[in-house]
């Protein structure tokens, strides 16, 4: 391996790491607020990429009717949840959020979809379709389980992942898709050439890290959101119910997922089941970051990306073995550092 190849591998690792980082950030966000390890995060990525690809092909993707169905189910779930304190305003709010919003998005999609919308419009539609799904999934699947153990929440997340992957196959078929890049530019940088797309990718990842860090570290709302995981009463006093905290964090996760999908789809082919493995790598990064720190998770994600890239060069058949065995020592190190001696409640 000479220096040029090493540079190319590092570049590849960083770009891949950026995808994992975006997933890791969402996982950290959702976990700190709701204690759910969001296995379906990878599905948001795939849905984002494939929805955009469908618009590019001039069709209306299956995610549009799915959005309507999820909205309707979430409406029912929200009404049941709020049955003890239902008034006209509340019903109106739920109906607006769960029925009118997806209805409007779907109407736009059906109106614009068949006419091959421009790339920017397609991206906007895609984000508008996938983002609310986060909130609806929270209302339908996780809100009723908010008191359950982390194990049960994790397993429920696996259930949601199975259902969404199955739907992905029905909507998009088994074959993959690509989308046109946001930028065709190729910038020479010494022996490397950097594509405009990968700069978009890395830049947006950094922006999201900074935004999340600022939101949770600096704003009162962010701090209150973090607090819901440990102290529900305190958060409620701040005017944030666990329902809202959950919807908000899930929606942000879905948004980041769809955005990552849009960013990655021009770089590689995305399949209905791509989400699981990249979700897993994001999970690795999130865990190495202790499911708490955004910069640590992002750094770990880039590390995973680089190990993967170098392993693909050195021993491609054993790439996953190398990646996953490499994380065991890291886990041991993290675990030893984080080890709580006392298990006082």
């Amino acid at each position: 391996m000479d220096a040029t190849i090493l540079m190319l591998l590092l570049q590849d690792g960083v770009v891949n790491g950026a995808i994992y980082a975006l997933i890791a950030l969402s996982l950290v966000l959702v976990f700190t607020v709701t204690r759910v390890i969001l296995i379906p995060q990878g599905e948001f990525v795939a849905f984002g990429a494939l929805t955009l690809a469908a618009f590019e092909a001039g069709t209306v993707p299956g995610t549009v009717p799915l959005l309507l169905a999820l909205g309707a189910a979430a409406c029912a779930a929200d009404l049941v949840e709020a049955r003890h304190a239902l008034d006209a305003r509340r019903i109106l709010r739920i109906a607006l959020r769960d029925l009118v919003l997806p209805g409007a998005v779907a109407a736009l999609a059906y109106a614009l979809g068949p006419g091959k919308p421009t790339l920017a419009l397609g991206i906007a539609l895609t984000l508008a379709i996938v983002t609310p799904m986060g909130a609806y999934l929270h209302s339908i699947a996780f809100r009723p389980l908010e008191k359950a153990s982390v194990l049960v929440l994790l397993v429920a997340a696996v259930g949601v992942h199975l259902a969404l992957t199955g739907l992905g196959l029905v909507f998009f078929g088994a074959e993959g898709s690509r989308t046109p890049p946001l930028s065709d530019a190729m910038l020479p940088a010494g022996p490397l050439s950097v594509s405009g797309q990968s700069l978009w990718m890395i830049g947006l990842t950094l922006a999201i890290i900074v935004a999340l860090w600022a939101f949770f570290g600096l704003t009162l709302l962010g701090k209150a959101l973090m607090a819901t995981a440990v102290n529900r009463l305190g958060a409620r006093l701040m005017g944030i119910g666990p329902g809202m905290a959950g919807r908000l964090s899930f929606s942000v996760a879905a948004f980041i997922g769809a955005l990552s999908g849009v960013l990655v789809a021009p770089l590689t082919t995305i399949y209905y089941d791509t989400g699981f493995l990249i979700g897993l790598k994001g999970f690795v990064a999130a865990i190495i970051g202790g499911l708490a720190s955004y910069p640590a998770a992002a750094a770990a994600a880039v590390l995973v990306g680089i190990i993967e890239s170098v392993a693909a060069f050195e021993a491609s058949a054993f790439k996953e073995v190398i990646v996953f065995m490499a994380i065991i020592p890291v886990l041991l190190w993290r675990s030893a550092r984080a080890d709580p001696v006392e298990d006082e409640e």
Binding site: I140, A141, A156, G159, V160, H161, L162, A163, L164, T165, G166, L167, L169, V170
Partner: peptide
């Protein structure tokens, strides 16, 4: 898989 996932949750 879809129905199984939903039922499971």
């Amino acid at each position: 898989a879809i129905v199984f996932g939903i039922l499971f949750v």
